[in-house]
């Protein structure tokens, strides 16, 4: 269940659309839910969102399964989404992905045993001029080097303690 504050946010989002078009709020509310409920969308969470927007659960499932930013499985506390498309590949994204794999001892799509990190290889994030890069939560980490990756991992670990 959302807090009072988040429920007000949901109301504010619904008010952006004409009467009866509250389904338009679905993607923003799913973002909100994913942020609140552990970084992923369980069936229970999706059903809850459906009830908030007064739509059928299937309408939520079909959207949640379409968009790649919605996680349908639990993920680590910090998700490294490293871009691997052409422009990043030209600037060495493969090496960065390999480096992270070795450093964290996980494969692409896997989560570390302590539940801290998930590594994903994703498609173009629109930061081609600042490649190689990854998304970490709300922000981009750009011009990546092994040293920078080390520092990011350290920072995440420090925040976890």
């Amino acid at each position: 269940m959302f807090s009072e504050e988040k429920l007000n946010k949901v109301k504010e989002i619904i008010a952006r659309y004409p009467q009866g078009r509250q389904k338009s709020a679905l993607i923003p509310v799913l973002h909100l839910a994913q942020g609140e409920f552990g970084g992923w969308l369980s069936t229970e969470t999706m059903d809850y969102v459906a009830s908030l927007l007064q739509i059928k659960p299937i309408e939520v499932y079909e959207v949640a399964t379409f968009y790649s930013m919605f996680n349908l499985q639990p993920v680590g506390k910090h998700v490294f989404e490293v871009c691997q498309t052409g422009p990043c590949m030209l600037r060495g994204s493969d090496n960065i992905i390999d480096y992270i794999k070795k450093k964290l001892d996980i494969g692409v799509g896997e989560t570390t045993k302590d539940g801290l990190f998930t590594l994903k290889a994703v498609e173009c994030l629109g930061a081609c001029g600042y490649a190689p890069m990854m998304q970490l939560g709300k922000h981009y980490k750009e011009h990546l080097t092994p040293e920078k990756v080390d520092a990011i991992i350290e920072e995440c670990r420090a925040n976890a303690n």
Binding site: R16, S24, I27, P28, L30, H31, F66, Y67, S68, M69, F70, E123, C124
Partner: peptide, 10 residues
Amino acid sequence: IYVQRGAGAY
């Protein structure tokens, strides 16, 4: 004017 976020779909 309202801002709407997508969710990762080219």
